[in-house]
Each structure stands twice: as C-alpha cells, then as structure tokens.
Computed example of a mutant assay.
Amino acid sequence: MSEARYGFLRANALSLAFGALFLVTLVGQAISGAADVNAQQVANGLPPVSLLDYVTSSSFGVDVMENWQSEYLQFFLYTFATVWLVQRGSSESKEPGKEGTESAREQRMGPHAQHDSPAWARTGGWRTALFSRSLGLVMGGLFLLTWVASSIAGWAAFNSEQLADRQDPVGWVGYLGEADFWNRSFQNWQSEMLAVGSMAVFSVYLRQRGSPESKPVGTAHADTGQTG
C-alpha cells in the first residue's frame, strides 16, 4: 500500500512513535538524573547544578553514550550473525540449510532486480556490493562512533572523580585499560546479548497475534522464519 493512500503519519507510525518515545525517555533521563545528582549535592553540602549544566556534563554524556553504543552493537552483531547462524523454529531466523548470503536471484540483485528495486540493487559492481551490506556497515559505523563518544565521556567523568579524590588524571588511551571503562561496557553489552538470545528462543514457542516479530498463532513450533 502506498504512503499516499494512508497518509504520512499512518505510513510512518512505527518510526514516529518510537522517535517520540525516545525523546520523552531522554528528557526523563535528564530530569531524573539531574534530580539524583542534586540530592547528592545537597547531602554533601554543595550547591545544586542546573539542568543545562547536568545535560552538558560528562556524567550525563557517558550514561547516554554507553546505552547507545550497546544498542548499535546488538543490531550490528545480529545483522551479520543471522546471515550465517540459524535458530530452528524462530521467526527471527532463516530456515536451516539457507545459511549464507543467498544467490543474486534470491536477493533480487543485478539482472534479477525488479522494476521497483532500489537503483543500487540493479546497477551491479561496487554500488550493489556496498548497498547489499549497507545495513550492517551503518550499524557497525554507528557502534564505533558511539563507542568512541562513550569512551571520551567516560574518560572525562573518570578524571573528574580522580581529581576529586586528589589523584592524578589518566590519558584517554590509559583510560581504555581501566577497569572502570570495561565494567561500564560489559554491563551494557551482556544485557543486549541476553535480550537478543531470549527473543530468538522465545519466538520459537511463544506468539503475539498480528506482530511481524512473531509467527502466526497456529504455526508449528518447528516452522522457521515465518512471521505473522
């Protein structure tokens, strides 16, 4: 169905809804985080900080970037892993025996492209090769960018604590070897790996009627790759 038939809002409701929820929860994180910091400031006999000062601080920055980079890591790994790995019965998986990048015919690439296929799927050469891996590359690139941003923000926050404790600050490379950095990273990464693995297994045996993330309600547990 075309976007013109349904209108912009209805045709893009999923991305718009999650975009709005993202903004609401980010604002909620900022407000609650500032309140928590100010409660500690008052308890220590220090003046409170403004919301603007808090959201521009390394403390807020590292919390946000740590979560973003773990999410992009999850999707980056899942995008590539599902090319080669399968989970029998899961709607999140290809059928066993169909591992791999599939043929040009199956992927509707080059001479097998259809009239409404994206232009770079039809042209062949480096453009098609790049476009055929673009989702994973973008997710990987966003993970690297947010990982760097997270490490810089964490480094600044770590050095603030070092100075407050009258200890010497460390350089950025030195911070990458600190337990603080890896503790922050693994805290987020392990939760993402658990969530993805759980979803792959739960979708074998559980259903959500009408959701494309689930198999049709009456589909056998062993059927793989089907969606409702």
Rank of each mutant, 00 (worst) to 15 (best):
W120I: 02
D116F: 08
P118N: 03
L145E: 13
V64M: 13
Q226K: 15
F186C: 07
Q69Y: 06
T25M: 09
K215I: 06
P118I: 03
S151N: 06
R122Q: 14
W182N: 05
W182P: 01
L14I: 10
S2H: 10
R10Y: 03
F181V: 00
D165C: 12
W126I: 15
E192G: 07
F80K: 03
V55W: 05
Q208D: 12
W84M: 04
G197T: 08
F143D: 01
G7T: 13
D223I: 15
E192K: 09
S32I: 04
V201C: 09
G97Q: 04
G154V: 00
A4E: 13
N159F: 01
L51N: 03
G28K: 02
Q208S: 13
Q74T: 08
W189H: 09
V37D: 07
L9E: 01
A157F: 06
S50G: 07
S191A: 13
R133Y: 07
A35V: 06
H221R: 12
G171N: 04
R166G: 11
L176T: 11
L144C: 12
R133Q: 15
G140V: 06
Q74D: 04
G28N: 06
R10V: 12
R10M: 07
V27E: 02
V64L: 15
D168G: 05
Y54W: 14
G19Q: 03
V201H: 07
D180Y: 07
Q187H: 10
G125D: 08
S90E: 03
L46I: 00
L21N: 02
L21Q: 00
L51Q: 04
F158L: 01
G125S: 10
P118R: 05
D63Q: 14
F8D: 08
A153C: 14
W155F: 12
Q114F: 14
